[in-house]
């Protein structure tokens, strides 16, 4: 496998009960890149994202076929513990979802419980909050409830919380769709900064956002991967007519 590929899908099908939500997806995600997944609602892009850290396991009556290879192993093989996968593949959700705990404890929660890397928690909290460009805003109120922060701050806290686990990959499921334009801009800057150290896979409904921040873009439609290429290419001269129709706003 290409050394630049961090996670790859081979003929992946996914079913909710009888419904096939993803059809025969084969694709490679590249290391230290931002990959955007775009497509109209219900096209399967969020489903795909949640497959990568086994969050779909939480939904009853679902089924995966095919291989998703990460670190040389199929993450769906029976001897793999989803908990271990989720430590390495973090996730940020559509709506900011901090725990009803203090800012400090939101960050410290994961590392404390998963034990392996309990070095200096104070250092870790400071470091990850700085990484998420939130430190200056919260350094004096670390013991205040995270619920009191603004939506944009909460989302950056959620990013910091995911970073505290020192993941390889960060999955983001429409992380700015609940935020105002200024908060969105901050998160986008942050993503730009984070891709030096992390691989980022982001689902977005906002095509300008995909164009602004991603290196590669995958377009999904009705559970199929229609086109997957460099973002520049997708947004300037896509190979497939459907892709062009979607990004120019003819449907979606």
């Amino acid at each position: 496998m290409d050394a630049n590929v961090i996670i790859s899908l081979n003929n992946v099908n996914f079913y909710y009960g009888q419904n096939r939500a993803l059809t025969d997806i084969t694709m490679n995600f590249r290391k230290n890149k931002v990959t955007a997944l775009i497509g109209p609602s219900g096209c399967g892009k969020s489903t795909l994202l949640r497959l990568l850290n086994r969050m779909n396991d939480l939904i009853d009556d679902t089924r995966v076929e095919g291989d998703i290879i990460y670190e040389g192993k199929n993450i769906y093989s029976p001897d793999i513990d989803p908990v271990e996968i989720r430590k390495k593949i973090g996730m940020v959700f559509q709506k900011p979802n901090p725990f009803p705990k203090t800012i400090y404890n939101n960050i410290a929660y994961g590392p404390k419980l998963t034990a392996s890397n309990t070095g200096d928690i104070n250092m870790l909290v400071e470091q990850t909050l700085k990484q998420a460009v939130l430190w200056d805003e919260v350094k004096d109120i670390l013991n205040q409830s995270a619920m009191k922060l603004s939506g944009g701050q909460q989302q950056r806290l959620c990013i910091a919380r995911a970073l505290a686990m020192k993941p390889d990959i960060l999955l983001m499921d429409e992380p700015t769709s609940a935020l105002d334009p200024i908060s969105t801009a901050k998160i986008e800057e942050l993503i730009e900064e984070l891709k030096k150290d992390y691989t980022i896979i982001i689902v977005t409904h906002n095509m300008q956002q995909a164009a602004r921040i991603s290196d590669e873009t995958a377009f999904f439609y009705l559970g199929n991967l229609i086109e997957y290429n460099k973002t520049e290419k997708i947004f300037t001269k896509p190979d497939v007519k459907q892709t062009e129709d979607y990004i120019t706003g003819r449907f979606g």
């Binding site: 973090g90 725990f99 419980l113």
Partner: peptide, 18 residues
Amino acid sequence: VPQTFREASLALGVSKWQ
């Protein structure tokens, strides 16, 4: 208890019981 709390915790690689 909102489902999002559970998801947030599980997504960090924290076990179900914890």
